[in-house]
């Protein structure tokens, strides 16, 4: 059996009085890409924030790399090797590209080649040309590349990638897909939240569909592509 990197069960979370997640269960194996799908407001981002500790889980367990991480501070979770790329990017706009990467930099675990700015520039050639530019002067697509590169600088084992294709031009979306595949090739497990089935099919092996804060469907991405009923029930608007 494949090695579990992340295992979530019974996860509930919300904002103030609003309950959003009701016992989410999901897992991620080493080196696999899974797509977390669902309509707007289904709870995809909330799931990621709760796993990352940005939102304190109200119930349930989150295991990462063999350790219970529910309730830990985000920085501790990040240090265990879980990377997070937020949907609104949250680039440090006052900082240059190189400085943004510096904030994300952490030593690699023993025995693994560390990501460097130069290696990341191979994946995102656009960034190489603007290393000293302030992030506020970058396009949305460039910022999306930067936010992924910044997380990779921390040499994570697994990455929570929230809607990397949202609002981007088709060429850039293609680059994002390549970046995800490249991460997979490096052995990084990726949980990518996505509304676009084509994108998900291009990068992921498996899909999970969230609705109203629960995982309603789970299976190989090919099955999802073939099954129109499921798509109509959970995905199309």
């Amino acid at each position: 059996m494949a090695e579990r990197v992340l295992e979530v069960s019974g996860l509930s979370a919300g904002y103030g009085p609003a309950e959003v997640l009701f016992g989410v269960a999901l897992h991620l194996d080493r080196g696999e890409v899974a797509a977390l799908m669902g309509r707007n407001g289904a709870g995809k981002s909330t799931t990621m924030k709760a796993i990352m500790g940005l939102l304190t889980p109200r119930a349930g367990s989150v295991r990462f790399a063999g350790q219970d991480i529910a309730g830990l501070a985000p920085y501790r979770i990040a240090r265990l090797g879980l990377g997070y790329v937020p949907e609104d990017r949250r680039i440090f706009t006052d900082l240059s590209v190189m400085e943004n990467l510096e904030v994300g930099r952490r030593a690699a675990p023993a025995g693994r080649a560390a990501w460097t700015a130069e290696r990341l520039f191979e994946i995102f050639p656009n960034l190489a040309e603007m290393r000293h530019r302030r992030a506020s002067a970058m396009s949305g697509g460039e910022q999306q590349m930067l936010t992924i590169a910044r997380t990779l600088m921390g040499n994570p084992e697994a990455v929570l990638l929230d809607e990397p294709s949202e609002g981007l031009a088709p060429v850039i979306v293609e680059q994002m897909a390549e970046a995800v595949l490249r991460m997979k090739a490096e052995g990084i497990a990726v949980l990518v939240s996505e509304q676009d089935l084509d994108f998900a099919a291009a990068v992921a092996d498996r899909a999970l569909i969230l609705e109203k804060g629960q995982v309603r469907w789970e299976g190989p991405i090919a099955t999802l592509e073939a099954d129109e009923d499921v798509r109509r029930t959970y995905l199309t608007v």
Binding site: A73, P74, Y75, A78, Y84, P86, T93, N100, R150
Partner: peptide, 19 residues
């Protein structure tokens, strides 16, 4: 650099592993 980053978004700095 971390101070400047935290001045803008300290939660994100934490999510990147900075104590």
């Amino acid at each position: 650099v971390l101070i400047r980053a935290a001045t803008q978004d300290r939660e994100m700095v934490g999510a990147l592993g900075v104590n």
